[in-house]
């Protein structure tokens, strides 16, 4: 166990925890846009910055998502300087994206009414990188990447791009996107992944062998099956979740016949 102080309150945290996790556990809210526990720290939105002081540490302003707890660490999450810096971050975000509900709420919370910066960007993407990271680190596909234009000398990410030959159409990026820049649209027979308002990849939806309802993409099924062991692979059936329940309940009890397609 590690003991640290956050906003004057003594907090017990397990070793290896980040300041952000310890604060949340202690009921202290720190705003974030790019943090997700499943993906770990990334530190790009800079909204989770805190003042940090303690043994062996020069008093600094650091992102709490990336700072591990240690004994005697003293953290301030809501000082005037932190508040001011967060306001600037929000102003920059407001200037670099089209306004969305999550950003509007954040701006209202921090009293930001206008932005002193100007931009021509028209999409709501905040380049938080959740989609890029989930595709690479969790799905293991790396179909999404940060891209910049050719004249971008400083190699700063300007947008997200999908490699449609690699994409398996699982839609996790759309599910995780906090500003709905990536969307998933399923029609009768087709799945579309929409990025920045235009179709970035298309997939034919495969149909459930029992009821005929389109439920997922072939490439996604192949990706899931490749992660199963040999016995599970043998037993794998192309069924929608509803039919899977009926099929196996029926094979055990004979009391749950299949739904007619």
């Amino acid at each position: 166990m590690t003991t640290l102080t956050i906003n004057g309150k003594e907090i017990q945290a397990s070793a290896g925890m980040t300041v952000l996790e310890a604060a949340r556990q202690g009921g202290i809210e720190i705003p974030t846009l790019c943090y997700l526990k499943a993906l770990g720290p990334f530190g790009v939105c800079r909204l989770c910055i805190v003042e940090a002081n303690g043994p062996g540490l020069i008093p600094s302003i650091l992102p709490s998502c990336n700072l591990k707890v240690f004994n005697g660490l003293v953290i301030t999450t809501d000082s005037t300087i932190i508040h001011e810096m967060r306001r600037t971050m929000i102003e920059l975000l407001l200037a670099s994206t089209r306004l969305t509900e999550s950003l509007r709420e954040l701006a209202i919370k921090f009293g930001v009414e206008t932005s002193g910066f100007t931009t021509t960007k028209q999409d709501p993407c905040i380049l938080c990188g959740l989609c890029v990271r989930v595709c690479r680190d969790r799905i293991g596909v790396s179909a999404l990447s940060f891209e910049g234009s050719n004249d971008n000398e400083n190699v700063v990410a300007e947008e997200i791009r999908i490699n449609k030959d690699v994409c398996i159409g699982c839609g996790t990026c759309a599910n995780i996107c906090p500003v709905q820049t990536i969307k998933l649209e399923d029609t009768e027979s087709e799945r579309k992944i929409i990025l920045y308002g235009s179709v970035a990849s298309r997939f034919e939806l495969i149909k459930c062998d029992m009821c005929g309802v389109p439920h997922t993409t072939q490439k996604f099924v192949e990706s899931v099956v490749s992660r199963l062991d040999e016995d599970q692979k043998k037993g794998f059936k192309n069924l929608c979740p509803e039919c899977a329940r009926h099929y196996y309940a029926n094979s055990m009890t004979g009391q749950f016949p299949a739904i007619e397609g």
């Binding site: 499943a38 599910n175 996604f220 599970q232 037993g235 794998f236 979740p241 009926h246 196996y248």
Partner: peptide
């Protein structure tokens, strides 16, 4: 807090147990 919603478990489960 760790689920990203990839739905792999839904496709993999032979019993149709995980729900979206």
């Amino acid at each position: 807090s760790l689920c990203v919603g990839c739905k792999s478990c839904i496709t993999a489960c032979p019993w149709g147990v995980p729900q979206w």
